[in-house]
Amino acid sequence: REQLGAALTAANELIAVLNATLDSETAEAGRLAMDRAPFDPVRLARELVLLSRPHASAKGVELAVHVEPDLEAARGAVVGDVTRARQVLSNLLGNAVKYTLRGRVEVRLSLDEQSRVVIAIADTGPGLSAEELERAFEPFRRVERTGAGVPGAGLGLSLSRQLAALMGGELKGQSAVGVGSCFTFELPWDIGAAAPTEADESTLRGRIAPSRRPMRVLVAEDDALNAAMLRAILEQLGHQVVHAQNGKRAVELASACDFDLIMLDGRMPGLDGAHTAAALRGLGGPAGDMPIIAVIGGDAEEARECLDAGADTVLRKPVTVAGVARAVADAAAKGRDIAAGRDLSAFAVG
C-alpha cells in the first residue's frame, strides 16, 4: 500500500509538471485561452485558505485570512478567468504553507488607490535574498537552499506571473532571509461588475455561513488528509462530524448511532464505497434511509457503481466548499422528504 501511494504521488507530481510546462509554453506563445467572467476574489481566497488549513495545522503553522473593510463593502468584482486565478493563488498559498516550518501564513486582501484588488500572501518561512527571489521567478529554476527535498519543478512562480499578466494583473514578491516572504497578486477591480450569486457559489459570502440546520455527518474515508479536509469544510458549514476509517466501521457506527448524512469514499480498502453503500441500505429502518454522498476520484463507471449500490449522489475530488455545501443541502432536502414520507405512512390506510 505504501509503495502504491508513493507511485501515485509521483505520478500526480509528473502530471502537474507536464501540465505546468504545457501552460507555460502556451502562455509564452500567446495562445493560452483566458475566460472573462466576474468573480469574487474574497470568496475564492477564503475557500482556498479553508482547504489549505488541514495541511497547515498538521505542521503547526497558523493560517489566517484578513479582508480590509473597504473591499468587504465595495461594489463590483474582478472580471477574469477564475480558474487561472485559483491556479495562481493555490500556487502562492501552497508554497507559503510548504516552506513555512513554524509561525504563520496570512492572506490579506484590499483595494488600492488604482482600483486594483491586492491579494498578499505573507509567511514566516526561511525567506530569500534578492538574487534568490529573482531566480525563483525564472522557469525551471529552484532555490536549492530552501527547495532541497521539496517536490516541484520550479515552474510555479514563473507560470503564475505569466497568468497574472494575461489577466491584466501583476505578481510581485518581497523577501528577506530569516524573516519570510510576501507575494502580492494584483488584479483589476470592475465597479460595474457583479459576481455570480447561484446557490452553489453563495455559500461563501464574506465568510462561510453555517447551514441553517446543523447535521450529524458520518464521514467514511481511509485517507487522513482527505478526511481532515472534509471535516474542516463540514464544520465550517456548521455540522458535527464523526469519522470512520473504513467502510466496515462506517456500517457499524451507522447501525449503532443516529446520523443525518453519510459521506463515503468511493475507493476504500476492504469494503469500498459501492459495497459500503449497499450494506448501509441493507440496515433497514431510519439507518437504511439515510442520505448517502459518495466522494469519488474516478470515472463515470465508479460513479455508476456507487449510485447503483444506493448512494443518492456523487461528489468528485478534489472537493470544493461550494460543492460540499450544495451536496449537503440536497441531502438535507432528501432527508426531509423521507421524514415527511414516514409521517404520512403512519396515517396510511392499509
Rank of each mutant, 00 (worst) to 15 (best):
Q245L: 15
D223S: 13
E252A: 12
E201S: 07
E201R: 13
A244L: 05
Q240P: 07
A244V: 05
E302C: 14
I208S: 00
Q240T: 15
A279G: 06
I233R: 02
A194P: 05
G206E: 08
L280P: 11
V217Q: 01
R231M: 10
F259I: 05
V241F: 08
G270S: 03
I292W: 11
G273K: 08
S255G: 15
R216A: 07
L225Y: 13
A278I: 02
A232V: 03
D222L: 03
V295I: 12
G288P: 11
G247E: 01
N226R: 03
E235A: 01
H275Q: 13
I292F: 10
A303W: 05
V219A: 02
T203I: 13
A294L: 09
G297H: 08
I292G: 06
F259G: 06
A194M: 14
A244M: 03
D258E: 15
R216M: 01
G298T: 07
A294V: 07
L264P: 09
G288L: 07
A254L: 15
M229P: 00
E302N: 12
L204D: 06
D289A: 14
L225E: 09
V251E: 02
P196W: 04
E301H: 15
M215W: 07
A195R: 06
M215E: 01
E235M: 06
L261K: 15
A250P: 10
A199K: 09
G282A: 10
A279M: 11
L225K: 08
A244G: 03
E252K: 10
H239A: 00
I292S: 06
V219C: 03
L283N: 02
E301N: 08
R205P: 02
M268T: 00
R267P: 03
A278V: 02
A194T: 15
R207N: 10
C257F: 14
L218H: 05
G297A: 04
R216Y: 01
P291W: 07
M263F: 12
C257G: 01
E302R: 12
R267S: 09
P269D: 01
G284Y: 01
